[in-house]
Design a protein around this nucleic acid. Structure first.
Length: 604
RNA sequence: GCCAGCGUAGCUCAGUGGCAGAGCAACGGAUUUGUAAUCCGUUGGUCGUCAGUUCGACUCUGACCGCUGGCUCCA
């Protein structure tokens, strides 16, 4: 039931306060960007024939304009569009506003079919305004900068298709994206940030570091974890399980397929069938691969008569599910078709919900901090128009969610009416090392499934009662979480997660034997280590270890062999001097235990 | 699913209607090395797949598969 592959929020690209602006400056920037959109549209109209205009708003990191035109704009066109924009800026054309009657507006827009429809959206009685710069005129509410000469720094970023008004059934327009800043320096900083994000792309890093792959032969969106990626995942899973046991959860394992009837009862076949893999026939019965774990956990709940004395039940599972995601939506590890949710379901009484929710939020926050995500923000979604369950239940559940956020001291926003039909929820967003926000944990009440599956427990009054059910995914999916983590650390995993913690670099073949002794000692101490026994100079070995982002290198030459020591080189801090191996191991173990993440790089 | 772009060696990428290329990696040899690339050599390809046009297709056309950027979707 929990949804765990949600696109990253790339909009928030600002980091290290570089672009922190006051409120009115933000408005100025929005105006500037909106004006840039007009200038871009003006340039496109000059360069291309019969352009149908739609709209060109500012966005969080720039602006866009939607057009319909015969010619397909490609990145090769960007340069001449930018040149034309510069020409318009050079001309320093004033932005002039005119107010017209509806009939006059219709006359002006008689050849602009999308604009005419947009005009129809302007409520009767509202002023209809046009802004012009030179020959270009656009139905627009404004405001704008005084003249085109005010634009100082802009860039066309990319072009993509976009449905008119965002509806799948509407024609597809061409959307030209750009960005603009008040000065070239800020634009350069922004471009640097975009570059930084590109360098951190987990798909690139995963190839460089040999973490995972997706095979065309096997199928899109199906992830193969390579030894190094699998090692990291295994460490994450071990940590995850241990923490769950420590926090009062039990772990479950459930099947990967279930009969059609199960999915009919759960309602998935009614509401979610297009998201499920096609059924298979087994002995004349239809079976579906699971897109969610909830029905199985519910079946375990129903395997016996439950007493209020057993509640709350907290059941977690690393449950692998398969969902048919549309082809065009797949993206590295962020959006896949087969993934493992770190799912949990809590069954409890009404009296318990507040404490339970509080615990879940605390638990989530603690886990995120451990992985080095210090900024966590909550989004509370309340009852939508169409909803199941009693309003009183919704109220109480919503209140308990809000109380839990407050108890944990998290900043939060409320999305009124944004909840699922089956219950209110909290989504957590975390900020990564370069300030991007990722939606991750989700905590959702469910007033639907307990009803559909007729869940009960016997209360202290001897009567049957309906338990409360809460879905919870903490990391979301292991695949997506691993992608986020890779980008967060820029591939430089901290010691406690690094698949290879130590690489031993013998200076020459004379040290191979000693290197092997050191390796065995490290292995005995459960340190993940390898020896670079290849031919070549130390230079090259250091370089390769650096590229593989191994946290520690142990250089072993004649000197070290003689003194029975190792020379320690840290990936980011360089040489740390020589010491006895036991000392190094003790230090490493300390770092591993502390799960230190302070040595993260901001850029490579 | 929709719009656009792309698909050449393990990786990064050149290239042309007429014998398939480089760097790195891998492998072999030389070197025995002190903190981000030692030298020499060798191997490596159904140019995404299938059809069509052509005397001849990696190149042109079409369909399909996959990837990328968006849009839509994410009970």
């Amino acid at each position: 039931m929990t949804r765990c592959t949600v696109l990253p929020i790339f909009a928030v690209l600002f980091y290290r306060d570089s672009f922190k602006t006051m409120k009115n400056e933000t408005n100025d920037l929005e105006t500037l960007r909106h004006s840039s959109a007009h200038v871009m549209a003006a340039a496109v109209c000059r360069l291309f024939d019969s352009v149908q205009l739609d709209i060109g708003p500012s966005t969080d990191d720039g602006f866009y304009y939607d057009f319909d035109l015969e010619t397909r704009i490609t990145p090769e066109d960007f340069e001449r569009i930018e040149a034309e924009m510069n020409q318009i800026i050079e001309e320093d054309l004033p932005f002039e506003c005119i107010t017209v009657s509806r009939d006059e507006a219709k006359e002006i827009l008689k050849d602009q079919k999308y604009k005419l429809e947009r005009l129809a959206d302007v409520p009767e009685g509202d002023a209809i305004t046009f802004y012009s710069c030179g020959e270009f005129q656009d139905l627009c509410r404004g405001p704008h900068v005084e003249s085109t000469g005010k634009l100082r720094a802009f860039k066309i970023m990319n072009v993509a298709g976009s449905y008119y008004r965002g509806h799948e059934t509407n024609p597809m327009l061409q959307r030209l994206y750009g960005t603009a800043f008040t000065n070239p320096k800020q634009l350069r900083l922004y471009m640097k940030q975009v570059e930084e994000a590109k360098k951190r792309d987990h798909r690139r890093l995963a190839k460089d570091l040999d973490l995972y792959s997706i095979s065309e032969k096997v199928g899109p969106g199906l992830v193969h974890w390579h030894p190094k990626g699998a090692r990291i995942r295994s460490i994450i899973e071990d940590f995850w399980k241990k923490e769950h046991f420590k926090n009062g959860y039990d772990i479950l394992y459930t099947p990967h397929v279930g009969k059609a009837n199960l999915w009919e009862t759960s309602g998935h076949l009614d509401f979610y069938k297009e998201g499920m893999y096609a059924p298979m026939d087994v002995d004349g019965q239809e079976y579906f691969i699971k897109p969610m774990n909830c029905p199985f956990h519910i079946e375990i709940y129903k395997s016996g008569l439950r007493s209020y004395r057993e509640l709350p039940l907290r059941w977690a599972e690393l449950g692998t599910v398969y969902r048919y995601e549309k082809a065009g939506t797949l993206h590295g590890l962020f959006r896949v078709r087969g993934f493992t949710q770190d799912d949990a379901h809590i069954f409890c009484t009404q009296e318990q919900i507040e404490d339970e929710v509080k615990e879940v939020i605390r638990f989530c926050n603690m886990i995120w901090k451990t992985f080095g995500f210090t900024e966590v923000k909550a989004y509370l979604s309340t009852r939508p128009e169409k909803a199941v369950g009693e309003p009183a239940q919704w109220d109480q559940a919503t209140k308990s969610l809000e109380a839990a956020i407050k108890a944990e001291g998290l900043p939060y926003e409320i999305d009124e009416g944004g909840g699922a039909f089956y219950g209110p929820k909290i989504d957590l967003k975390v900020k990564d090392a370069i300030g991007r926000e990722w939606q991750t944990s989700t905590i959702q009440f469910d007033f639907n499934l307990p009803e559909r599956f007729n869940l009960k427990y016997i209360g202290d009054d001897g009567e049957a009662h309906r338990p409360y059910m809460v879905h919870r995914a903490l990391l979301g999916s292991l695949e997506r979480f691993f992608g986020i983590l890779t980008e967060h650390y820029a591939g430089g995993f901290p010691v406690w997660l690094a698949p290879e913690q130590v690489r031993i670099l013998p200076l020459s073949d004379d040290q191979l034997e000693y290197a092997d002794e050191v390796l065995k000692a490290l292995q005995q101490a459960e340190v993940r280590a390898t020896v670079d026994s290849k031919q070549g100079k130390l230079n090259g070995k250091v370089k390769n270890a650096q590229l593989d982002k191994v946290p520690y290198m142990l250089i072993i030459g004649g000197k070290e062999q003689e003194s029975n020591q190792v020379a320690v080189r840290h990936r980011l801090k360089g040489m740390k001097g020589e010491c006895r191996l036991e000392e190094f191991i003790a230090q490493l173990k300390k770092e591993e235990l502390a799960k230190t993440t302070v040595d993260m790089e901001v850029s490579d």
